[in-house]
Computed example of a mutant assay.
Amino acid sequence: MNDQQQTVFAPEDAQDYGKDPIAVRETDKYVSEYVRGFVEKWDELIDWQQRAESEGRFFIDVLKARGKHAVLDVAAGTGFHSVQLLKAGFNVSSSDGSAEMLAKAFDNGMRHGVVLKTIHADWRWLNKDIHGKFDAIICLGNSFTHLFDEADRRRALAEFYAALKHDGILIIDQRNYDGILDHGFSSKHKYYYCGDQVVAEPVHVDEGLARFEYRFPDGSSHNLNMFPLRKQYMRGLLEDAGFRKIKTYGDFQEESEEANPDFFVHVAEKNYE
């Protein structure tokens, strides 16, 4: 089977949101959204080379500056950050709630000369499947937005907190939903979704749902339902979970240096003092 055949959506990949797609606001829906056909196309959206160039050493430098080595990537996706960190010398465990994503991540790791330690796990019961404590947890790619229920968000952060060593850190990112909700959607596509042949934009946004459509060069399209997390709300959740010294970056810059970033990155410390 050639690459073109592999990326064609199969009939079983057809999405079903019922008669009212914007009424679907469920945490568990993401599992069925990441069907094989979409996962095979995901790297067209990411564009690994462009993303590596745009991010530079941001996450590597944040982790090394704090002396962290054992890292749990809880939103491994197709493996981009797990691979980057492994190649930089970190001890990485890669987890995701989508088995399709993990399979693709493992294959991508092999192509980049590394072997990923993959674990299929739901964040809400993370410590049932993940054993041991980590210096750092990363939750990237706007992944936390898949949790629609506040109880799920709080439970997931509690699980992250419990999986960290006493001086561990959590690095978690999100789209700038404040900008989308308050001013409408615009994106430089400079940092995260770098694939220049893929269109990613919302088809519906309100305070409880951001429904994005992804359109690919072959004419296919796919949708993801996400909860639009506001920045201060997210920081409040982190504080409520016990995290301290929360620093937020805008597109990898100090917040004051980027007026309207596409993404926020929160670096939160687990500190008993």
Score class of each variant (00 low, 15 high):
Asp206Val: 00
Lys87Ala: 07
Asn108Phe: 10
Asp167Ser: 06
Ala52Lys: 06
Val74Phe: 04
Phe264Ile: 02
Cys194His: 14
Ala105Cys: 13
Ala70Lys: 15
Asp47Trp: 03
Lys29Val: 09
Gly141Val: 04
Arg235Asp: 12
Gly250Ile: 00
Phe264Ser: 01
Leu126Ile: 15
Thr118Lys: 12
Gln84Ala: 07
Glu269Asn: 02
His81Gly: 02
Tyr214Asp: 00
Asp43Gly: 13
Ala156Tyr: 00
Asn260Asp: 15
Gly242Trp: 03
Leu147His: 01
Arg66Lys: 14
Pro228Trp: 06
Asp16Ala: 07
Val205Thr: 11
Ser98Tyr: 09
Lys231Asn: 10
Ser82Ile: 03
Phe134Tyr: 13
Lys247Arg: 13
Asp16Pro: 05
Lys68Cys: 13
Ser187Tyr: 14
Val74Ala: 05
Ile119Pro: 01
Arg175Leu: 11
Ile138Gly: 11
Lys29Asn: 07
Phe216Pro: 03
Gly56Pro: 05
Val205Ser: 09
Arg57His: 11
Tyr177Lys: 02
Pro228Met: 11
Asp262Gly: 09
Ala105His: 10
Leu126Cys: 12
Gln4Thr: 09
Asn223Glu: 15
Glu159Gln: 15
Glu12Arg: 13
Asp173Glu: 08
Asp129Gln: 08
Gly77Lys: 01
Ala10Glu: 11
Asp218Glu: 04
Ser220Gln: 04
Tyr30Asn: 09
Gln232Val: 14
Phe106Cys: 02
Ala241Ile: 08
Asp61Ser: 05
Ala65Trp: 04
Leu45Lys: 10
Cys194Ala: 15
Ser93Val: 13
Asp240Met: 02
Asp178Tyr: 06
Gln5Met: 06
His266Glu: 00
Phe59Lys: 00
Ala52Gln: 09
Ala210Met: 10
Asp167Val: 03
Leu181Lys: 11
